[in-house]
Nucleic acid binder design. Structure first.
Length: 554
RNA sequence: UGCCCGAUAGUAUAAUGGUAGUACGACGGUUUUUGGUGCCGUUUGUCUAGGUUCGAAUCCUGGUCGGGCAACCA
């Protein structure tokens, strides 16, 4: 297959490393900070890291990058693990950067003893000022030339809790005039008298990202440390520290993070949506979080296929939400159980069908399934159909019900409209039809033909349900370059609740978690909550492609 | 005006000096007891100016445009 020949740039690097014998086996890692829930951007990274390991017969560690006790919580650790498993991946080892705190401390001592790190008493303002700007070089700190002995002593005292937060920091001694600002004596340890979610009060000094991530990679002997583009300028520092410490040379490779239309992808902004109560929580079905998408009814397979299709490269990108939706539909079309639900009911009476009689029709659960299963659907004299499926004076291409027109009722009979009734405002209150017994589905009789097929429910045998119709959270395609605050661009119709929909009775017998296709309407999944008056509540995962909506706009 | 990264259809992503291909979208047709699905087809692209070469999306040089870097965040 030509598909196997087409490698992304990271796969090329790995194949070369394997071919040259640089490594016998690759080891990647997925390194989330437990300070929020995972989102679709993380899913791309997860699929990449775990996918690479699977493809090249390697392994992937899950490592929680927990070096900042002020922001990190165990709740997030648990959600992250659940999300990765749900996506279908298994990690080789579950690790925490905090497991390496002692080792990292020793690494810092090594650096100090080599004269490559020093304790700085400057305030953060002073340090920022001395750092210069991207276009002007920085100047040396007055504390830069402390002796090794003094630095060792002070660093020990930092660890021992002799100083307050912010009183001292440990910095690598590199070059204050370096064109890369990250090389201008970067901070590598800071004092924080805070309780850590795993180490408790054992430590009051914590390593910075740059002195933790690469070292953790090296400790674990990660071969390919894959991160996003904003870490490109960190790579010289990543390499410098490993070289000075003379430890296992892990290597960092960077790819472009995922951006999607009509949503935001930073944990900070997502947290804001949660805190401002714009959404119900991290798992609100409108959120681009993995837990939100799960509750929405997106499937792991759809997300994996999406990740595969968008590829991996180094240029900035903005992916259409509709591409993700395509993969969701593609998966659900094959797996979702079909049911009939009328969203906006209008009464339809079959005048030549006996009152009180109930005929049970057979309906396929899924026309795409290789092994067919069926459910019974009660058919009665009085039914409900979709209000929008009837027009008094229809345009030419309207294939639904209208005076004197014929349509098929799905799984049932062809009917013809004889008359209709209206209230004073002109609203349709009832449609009267005749049915043709010989046209029953499966009878093989096709003397009658109907252009359209409608879904319906019995007026006497149905289940009232509540529907949550979700749509994009924002009205602007590219939220990264949108002007003003995110609140200016919220989609007021991102959630529409319909509490007057009617479902066929079979819906009560189905398993929770069942993926549905409500015929001609869209894919749905039952929510964890219940709807109005305790009714079953269903979330719209994604609508069906609707070429009539397009046609009728013309 | 420092350093770094990038630029291929509308959106993504291939082509690794030798026919610019794929997916989604859009458009048209076909099948259909879901205006769904399936199937078939059409459309649209190498940022720019030079150079190297028999031959450049690919290599070189200049430019343009986009992004990143001045957190005791990751």
């Amino acid at each position: 297959m030509s598909e196997e020949k087409s490698l992304n740039f990271i796969e090329e690097i790995i194949e070369n490393d394997l071919k040259s014998g640089k490594y016998n086996q690759i080891l990647t890692r997925f390194p989330p900070e437990p300070n929020g829930y995972l989102h679709i951007g993380h899913a791309k990274s997860i699929c990449l890291n775990f996918g690479l390991a699977a493809r090249y017969n390697g392994k992937t560690n899950l490592r929680f990058d927990d070096t900042n006790p002020e922001k990190e919580e165990t709740e997030y650790v648990e959600s992250i693990k659940a999300d990765i498993k749900w996506l279908g991946f298994d990690w080789a080892k579950e690790l925490y950067t905090s497991d390496y705190f002692e080792q990292l401390y020793q690494f810092a001592v090594v650096l100090i003893k080599k004269g490559l790190a020093y304790v700085d008493d400057s305030t953060s303002e002073q340090i920022a000022h001395e750092k210069g700007t991207p276009t002007t070089p920085g100047v040396n700190s007055p504390y830069r030339n402390r002796t090794v002995e003094e630095n060792v002593e002070l660093f020990e005292q930092m660890r021992a809790g002799k100083f307050k937060d912010g009183e001292k920091v440990l910095r690598a001694k590199i070059d204050m005039a370096a064109p890369n600002m990250l090389l201008r004596d970067p901070l590598i340890y800071r004092i924080k008298h805070a309780t850590h979610h795993r180490t408790g009060d054992q430590w009051c000094i914590y390593p910075m990202y740059d002195f933790a991530h690469g070292q953790s990679d090296s400790i674990e002997k990660i071969t390919h440390s894959i991160c996003t583009l904003e870490f490109v300028p960190h790579r010289p520092l990543y390499d410098w520290l490993i070289e000075q410490l003379e430890i296992f040379p892990s290597h960092q490779y960077e790819f472009a993070r995922l951006n999607m239309t009509y949503t935001v992808m930073s944990k900070r902004k997502l947290l804001q949506l949660v805190n401002d109560k714009i959404v119900e929580g991290w798992d609100d079905p409108r959120m681009p979080t993995i837990s939100g998408m799960r509750r929405r009814g997106y499937t792991p397979k759809a997300i994996r296929e999406f990740s595969r299709q968008i590829g991996v490269a180094k240029r900035e990108n903005l992916i259409d939400l509709s591409l993700l939706e395509f993969f969701v539909r593609e998966d659900l079309n094959e797996t979702a159980t079909r049911r009939m639900v009328v969203f906006d009911p209008v009464k339809l009476v079959i005048t030549n069908f006996e009152a009180g009689e109930v005929e049970y029709l057979e309906g396929e659960d899924n026309p795409e399934a290789t092994e067919k299963t069926y459910r019974k659907i009660p058919f009665t004299r009085e039914l409900y159909i979709e209000r929008e499926d009837f027009m008094v004076d229809p345009p030419k291409k309207f294939f639904r019900l209208a005076p004197e027109k014929m349509v098929r009722l799905k799984y049932g009979y062809i009917i013809q409209c004889d008359s209709f009734e209206q209230d004073d405002l002109g609203n349709i209150t009832q449609i009267n039809c005749t049915y043709f017994p010989e046209s029953k589905s499966g009878s093989g009789d096709n003397t009658l033909k109907a252009k359209g097929t409608l879904h319906w429910v019995s007026a006497t045998h149905h289940v009232p349900v509540t529907l949550q119709l979700y749509d994009r959270l924002f009205t602007v395609e590219d939220m990264n370059s949108a002007e003003g605050e995110y609140k200016d661009h919220l989609n007021p119709d991102s959630l529409i609740i319909n509490s007057h929909a009617l479902a066929e009775p079979a819906i009560l017998q189905d398993q929770p978690g069942q993926a549905y296709q409500f015929l001609r309407k869209g894919y749905f999944i039952q929510d964890k909550h219940s709807g109005a008056n305790g009714q079953p509540l269903f979330n719209r995962t994604v609508g069906l492609k609707d070429s009539w909506a397009k046609e009728s706009k013309k």
